[in-house]
Amino acid sequence: MDIEGSFVLQGSPERVYGYLVDPGFIGDHLADVENVEVIDNDNFNVRAKVGIGFMKGKVDFKFHFDEKVAPKSGKLVGNGTGLGSKVDVTILFTLADGGESTTIGWKSHASLSGKIASIAGGALQSVVKKNTQRFIESIKQGIDAELSAAGAAAGRS
């Protein structure tokens, strides 16, 4: 399942990039997260709650940054297991400098296999889409808030 999109943030790529490769920040914005455990700068584990139809339970993800080219691009890879299933996610993002702003282009590829894929059947596509969009929207708002807070703080000082 492939989904892609882009959004614009007010701020330089250098400032935005830091958030995008911060395991703690990313983990906080994933949808339906129960627990995030940051291991180091490149690795973090996430326990997510999953509920599709009558299937409810937890999926444990291992995330790591596979590539980091600051401040241009990055690749986040996640492998989850749980509920008799595997969830493999890859998120690629690129940053384009627009002077005052940065355009963040993203591409996500998710594949689900095992019980969840089998049982939830057709419902999956929309669930994955919704969660991915929520994640991106949450990151966007999160960085926005952090940047404007930082800006306000800077202004005050």
Binding site: L112, A117, G122
Partner: peptide, 14 residues
């Protein structure tokens, strides 16, 4: 089956 080889009709719901 879907394009990844997952059976989409694995219960009496589907």
């Amino acid at each position: 089956y879907d394009e990844a080889g997952q059976l989409l009709t694995a219960t009496f719901k589907d």
